[in-house]
Design a protein around this nucleic acid. Structure first.
Length: 324
DNA sequence: CGGTTTTGACCCGCGC
DNA sequence: GCGCGGGTCAAAACCG
């Protein structure tokens, strides 16, 4: 594993989840029919009592906020530690795979061109981890791909995205913020699952192509291979509308032809995960406002699409209302 | 009605 | 030259 950058999304936007900031308990001695406001301030209370109450409340909230911040920091550190350990373990695994692949490569020289996945993993030493659904692994290479056209044109960028989907999901749809038109499907020799061919339909002149096929080893994993670069801006809305709720939703990290290798691993399934670890990506791309905006959009859409998050939010709100 | 998907046919490069 | 396999074409079907 090479150098790495940690992008802390909390640097760009604050998400204050301290629900205790919105205390809705009514004073116990408030008679029925008396209207109170949501700040817990009784209109008829004397000014001095009100001030002291507010001060006490403020101090208590500060203390609670401090404790929550410490807890969050501890969780974040644990996350980073686990992430690095996982990276170590998987890189060791990929090194072992490299040795095995090298030993067996001579025996199956004729099939080397079809061993794209393992080759890319060997060359990149990338992480191929799957925490749970929607976990994504993006691999990119500029010249190591087996595709002949790519070898003829070394500037053509090829990136590979691994998307874990629901086992019941049989569609070959990978939502990546662009609008695609399927132009072919083929059953290949080394994989019983058909491979779908897509072109970017947002711009007729856009040279980008996408191939999507289920992994032969793990049918719940979709492997999307992107060739070329989009020559137009993103079109998230149209893609979202066209793809509806079907398909997995990775984050597309557009790759420049100059970067030989790129691995991006995102875990969008944790509602509290505000950290994104980007390994081996170009710093300028991470710093770019477009990248960060896209990141935030994807995080927000991931949260709102998550039924668990929305139901928990609804339960929390309704619980507060019922208590009140 | 226009855009998308499906699917069989066709093209092309590679290995034997 | 021939067969094989991956990639593309294009007409028909489908859908909103």
């Amino acid at each position: 594993m090479g150098s790495s950058w940690i992008v802390d999304a909390s640097q760009t936007f604050d998400l204050d989840l301290n629900l205790d900031s919105f205390r809705l308990e009514a004073p116990k001695d408030v008679p029925r029919g008396v209207q109170i406001n949501f700040m817990g301030v009784e209109n008829k209370a004397p000014v001095k009592d009100e001030t002291s109450d507010l001060k006490a409340e403020l101090e208590r909230m500060k203390e609670e906020n401090r404790r929550l911040t410490e807890t969050l920091s501890a969780v974040y550190e644990n996350y980073i530690t686990l992430q690095s350990r996982l990276g170590d373990v998987t890189s060791m695994t990929s090194e072992k795979d490299t040795m095995l692949a090298m030993l067996s490569s001579r025996k199956r020289k004729a099939e080397n061109n079809r061993e794209v996945k393992s080759d890319v993993v060997d060359i990149d030493g990338s992480i191929n981890c799957n925490f749970n659904n929607n976990n994504i692994n993006v691999e990119s290479s500029s010249s190591e791909d087996s595709c002949k056209k790519i070898k003829e044109d070394p500037k053509t960028m090829v990136s590979r995205v691994h998307v874990r989907t629901e086992p019941s999901d049989t569609s070959l749809v990978v939502k990546d913020g662009y609008q695609w038109r399927k132009y072919g499907q083929k059953v290949t020799r080394d994989n019983p699952c058909p491979r779908a061919y897509f072109r970017c339909s947002y711009a007729p002149a856009c040279p980008v192509k996408k191939k999507v096929q289920r992994s032969a080893e793990d049918p719940s994993v979709l492997v999307a291979t992107y060739e070329g670069e989009h020559n137009h801006p993103n079109c998230t809305k149209s893609e979202t509308r066209a793809a509806s709720n079907k398909g997995a939703s990775p984050v597309l990290i557009s790759s420049s032809s100059a970067s030989p290798t790129k691995t991006v691993t995102l875990d969008l399934t944790r509602p509290n995960s505000s950290q994104v670890a980007v390994v081996g990506a170009h710093h300028r791309e991470i710093d770019s406002p477009e990248f960060q905006r896209h990141l935030v959009e994807q995080m927000a859409s991931s949260l709102t699409r998550d039924p668990g998050f929305t139901s928990a939010l609804a339960a929390a709100i309704s619980g507060r209302i019922m208590r009140y």
